[in-house]
């Protein structure tokens, strides 16, 4: 009986829409991810990145891995194709550029955590982002070693970049300490209870379109013509009639992004959305957050 009540409760709570978030104040966004395509993996980010840019942020993408395993062309060719596609996809989202850290794809478990973190701290101090987007360091069941590693490094880099005793050598270059005030963490919300989003970010149709395009730009890993051929052999899909298998595959991938953005929108009372675990600027001070926000005045 107790179990039944718990299940019913969970069902009801699960159906509760999340609060709709706003783009936090600022001018600069840094997206820190392991892979070329992570702006749209795990259902996230492509739309929110486009929204940040449309609302006035300049955005950069940090790509920690060389993505050599993604694609069927052998490591060095995959590297180059994925780099090219990464530049194209981030351009579609309106981003300014990509920092490639070039760590070996899917072998990041064994790389020195503090060395990776140092690279992120340097880039955070260079760009001084107001917001960072990345994978949730506390997500469960992420089977990708690179996702875990980069999220773990990011979990410390965003605040340690604000401490003057951390990598003081950076200050020789004129850089200054900088703590990132706003964070958006993504993860698969359908992987158990390891990631529970606390905010839904509404998207416009144009932002969803950019997300769809950015995703399908990664032809080297997605949009396989063989997949499209297999699907079309089984069912007739009027919308892709007359298209080549390659074109149909691109269409399928784009629908996937449209579908998830629409689904997250419907769950949260808007047309399109993405969901995140959001950290506000003083959430790291649970005992002071209320006091600071209710006593702060304009200068």
């Amino acid at each position: 009986m107790r179990l039944l009540i718990a299940l019913v409760l969970a069902g009801v709570l699960g159906a509760q829409p999340l609060p709709l978030g706003r783009i936090p104040p600022g001018r600069t966004l840094l997206v820190i991810e392991p892979h070329h395509d992570d702006h749209t993996t795990d259902y996230g980010m492509g739309g929110l990145i486009a929204r940040f840019v449309e609302e006035g942020h300049r955005a950069w993408y940090v790509r920690a891995s060389n993505d050599e395993k993604d694609g069927a062309h052998g490591y060095p060719h995959n590297d180059m194709i994925n780099l090219r596609e990464s530049l194209e996809a981030t351009r579609i989202l309106g981003m300014e550029g990509v920092h490639g850290l070039n760590w070996r794809n899917d072998y990041m478990d064994s790389i020195p955590l503090n060395e990776l973190r140092a690279q992120l701290i340097l880039l955070i101090r260079k760009h001084r982002p107001d917001a960072v987007l990345g994978h949730d360091p506390w997500a469960h069941y992420d089977r990708n070693p690179d996702h875990r590693k980069v999220a773990r490094a990011l979990a410390e880099a965003y605040w340690m970049a604000g401490l003057a005793n951390v990598h003081p050598e950076h200050f020789e270059l004129g850089l200054k300490p900088h703590r990132v005030p706003y964070l958006f963490f993504k993860a698969r919300v359908d992987y158990g209870k390891g990631h529970e989003p606390n905010v839904a970010m509404e998207l416009t149709e144009s932002q969803v379109r950019k997300k769809m395009k950015a995703y399908s730009t990664h032809r080297n890993v997605y949009a396989s013509p063989a997949m499209a051929r297999a699907v079309r052999a089984q069912i007739e899909i009027p919308e892709v009639k007359g298209l080549t298998d390659e074109e149909a595959a691109v269409r399928f991938e784009e629908w996937h992004m449209e579908w998830i953005s629409r689904k997250r929108g419907r769950e949260n009372g808007v047309r399109y959305a993405e969901v995140y675990f959001y950290r506000d600027e003083f959430d790291h001070l649970p005992g002071l957050k209320n006091y600071i926000t209710s006593n702060t005045v304009k200068q």
């Binding site: 703590r179 005030p181 006593n295 702060t296 005045v297």
Partner: peptide, 11 residues
Amino acid sequence: RLQETGRRLPL
């Protein structure tokens, strides 16, 4: 942080 964003906490 407050100063950089045009705010202050009187305390």
